[in-house]
């Protein structure tokens, strides 16, 4: 099992706000990792650093041994927390846009998932419901054959039935060599598919553990432990 993500003494400050404070961790490949923390704990900052959308104030991130740059971006599939697609485009246009943009994009996988959801490729994005738009975004991300998938709040905006769909999409497209990072505060919905969790609090890692360790040692679910750690 090889190391896919390695962060050392990573800090990010915005003006005088310390969003991340000197955090270090590594993630192995082949894992589904939950990045958990309350609002404002630094989850999205960390994710943007992994994608090279922000640069660290201090410290270093390596993905697959390389510094963040063109080569790492080819290997990272990113689902942002808000949509960035042009709403006038049709689903089909977006699929071919992605196929042009990413070498590892598999259009046939995307079309198969779309047909299972009864989303016609001719539909314009703006005519889709919010939930369906989010599903299209997830399908686009999961149709890449990446080494690292970074999903920022993939279940926040969808109904419980759609959450099950999102979870089964992640399981179905999961490849044992790839790592999936899922950031969320809806822990109860997602914890049974996680291998590992990282708890972030005020820009610091307060816990990194496998979920089975949590269940064995604390005899409680990740959700309950989270409520305990972040009690106010």
């Amino acid at each position: 099992m090889s190391e896919i993500v390695c962060c050392t003494n990573l800090s990010k400050t915005y003006g005088n706000v310390n969003a991340l404070k000197n955090i270090s961790f590594t993630l192995d490949s082949g894992k589904i990792v939950g990045l958990l923390g309350p609002n404002g704990s630094g989850k999205t900052t960390l994710i943007k650093l992994l994608n090279g959308l922000l640069t660290p104030t201090k410290g270093e991130i390596r993905i697959g041994g390389q510094k963040i740059g063109v080569e790492t971006k080819k290997q990272v599939a990113y689902l942002p927390d808000n949509s960035y697609l042009n709403s006038w485009m049709t689903v089909k246009q977006i699929v071919s846009y992605f196929a042009d943009f990413y070498e590892d994009f598999q259009p046939e996988v995307a079309y198969e998932m779309l047909s299972r959801l009864d989303i016609a490729p001719e539909r314009k994005l703006k005519t889709l419901s919010k939930g369906n738009k989010e599903k299209v975004c997830l399908i686009l991300v999961m149709s890449r054959k990446a080494r690292l998938y970074v999903l920022d709040e993939p279940i926040a905006g969808v109904d419980p039935a759609a959450r099950d769909y999102v979870i089964s999409t992640i399981i179905n497209n999961y490849n044992p060599e790839a790592t999936v990072i899922i950031s969320t505060h809806l822990i109860a919905d997602i914890e049974q598919i996680l291998d590992e969790v990282i708890f972030l609090k005020n820009g610091e890692i307060v816990l990194q553990s496998t979920v089975d360790e949590i269940r064995t040692e604390h005899e409680k679910s990740v959700d309950e432990l989270f409520r305990e750690v972040f009690k106010w």
């Binding site: 894992k31 589904i32 089964s168 399981i171 999961y174 044992p176 049974q192 291998d195």
Partner: peptide, 14 residues
């Protein structure tokens, strides 16, 4: 493995 993972809603590694 995958069928069980999807049916039970759990991680394929598990």
């Amino acid at each position: 493995v995958r069928e069980i993972a999807v049916a039970a809603g759990v991680n394929p590694n598990t």
